[in-house]
Design a protein around this nucleic acid. Structure first.
Lengths: 229, 229
DNA sequence: TAGTGGTCTAGACCACATT
DNA sequence: ATGTGGTCTAGACCACTAA
């Protein structure tokens, strides 16, 4: 579907690509552009706002709209629930709890969850399987302060992720992605050799500044996380 | 800074979190909300549009605005130029070319670049260093069809990434992130043991559907890619 | 001080999906 | 046919910031 603000945005994009305004160069103001395109100022404004949002141009009051010298490349990465990820591949999802306990976390975890020394938290280790094969290992700590229900929760039938999304649906999240060498337990649960290179995501989520959970998601050997931008 | 549409968005978010409209539930229409908040329809519309963009609600014509049953978690990941990434950490950036040549790529690479069998492409292997220590290894193929200048380009002084951003600034990109075990050359160049778990990003970029470049960025051992959403 | 982007308003028309 | 969101318009005021 082609609408005026999309057309304008595409035309501006084309002219930027063609070098009409070089990197660092200034585009005409919204008022000038609205005269050029014969549209309302709000319409070209929307086109420019989206280009700014995508990192193509940079806008400052009084200064105008300039082409970014080095375009900011940013991608949108959707992190689906692992169940949806597996089912989207046409595989059958299965969940297996390895162990769940109320224990005193190691000091590093305690500090990151904002817990007092010695305070216990819910620890869950579980496995997500695709067509019966290990797909992702989930090692999670849940703060009982942020989520009191975690003290009694039973993760025998359902993964803590889906459970938490219901308890605390809207959170801020810090994410780290990196590679690790499989330790003995990871190797056994993911059926790969010890020392194998595994892709791991660590996420810490907050609700109103209060740490809710800290989780390490370790994927089976060879897993590739894909996206497009 | 607090503006009406931000206030409305925050208030709607609060009420959704509080369970006023349960997952799957329908919010009042834009017209009703504009009466409730005493704002123009466009203002509540903007608030709702952003909530929709963030995956909190789902909007459909005639159907209304509903709270998503399982909120879509998506993050924005900015991939900075490695130079900026290093300098942002307060380290000194240095670039080192390992080798650059016009060669026939292996068949897999040829196919992905859309090159005829036997057609040569520019291959560049180079290293990005932070305070003199290896930080990222870049292994890149550039299609001469999409970027003729690549046939003669000299990457002695400047990395191919910065060069390419100038040649073809706006592209579509496919990205894969995963872990690999260091091979002999990677281990030597990144000064880590062979077999070490390394974080790698593979990017293929397109301009108007034409493949431009295929690159593997391998980070030093222990690198963590961070983001927040 | 002046010019730019950021936002809001009131109204209008259209696209779309259900009924 | 109807009610919803999606977009556009013309005009207005405000916030920021370089001159």
């Amino acid at each position: 579907m082609t609408t005026p603000f999309r057309d304008i945005k595409a035309d501006l994009m084309r002219r930027i690509s063609a070098g009409e305004w070089p990197p660092g160069g200034t585009l005409p103001s919204e008022v000038e552009l609205s005269a050029i395109y014969g549209s309302a100022r709000a319409t070209v404004g929307r086109a420019l706002a989206e280009l700014s949002d995508e990192g193509i141009v940079e806008r400052r009051r009084r200064f105008g709209t300039r082409v970014r010298a080095t375009p900011i490349r940013q991608m949108r990465l959707t992190i689906p629930l692992v169940r949806a990820e597996i089912e989207a591949q046409g595989a059958e999802y299965r969940y297996a709890l390895v162990r769940s306990a109320l224990v005193t976390p190691p000091q590093g975890v305690s500090a990151r969850l904002g817990l007092l020394r010695g305070k216990k938290a819910r620890h869950v280790l579980c496995l997500h399987l695709a067509d019966g094969a290990p797909y992702q290992l989930e090692d999670r700590w849940i703060s009982g302060i942020a989520v009191p229900a975690a003290y009694e929760a039973d993760f025998a039938a359902e993964g803590p992720n889906e459970w938490l999304v219901r308890q605390v649906p809207y959170t801020d999240v810090d994410v780290a992605m990196y590679a690790v060498a499989a330790d003995a337990e990871q190797a056994e649960l993911l059926t790969c050799p010890p020392g194998a290179a595994l892709f791991q995501i660590e996420r810490q989520t907050f609700q109103d500044g209060q740490a809710v959970t800290l989780v390490r998601l370790t994927y089976r050997e060879g897993h590739r996380m894909l996206t497009r931008y």
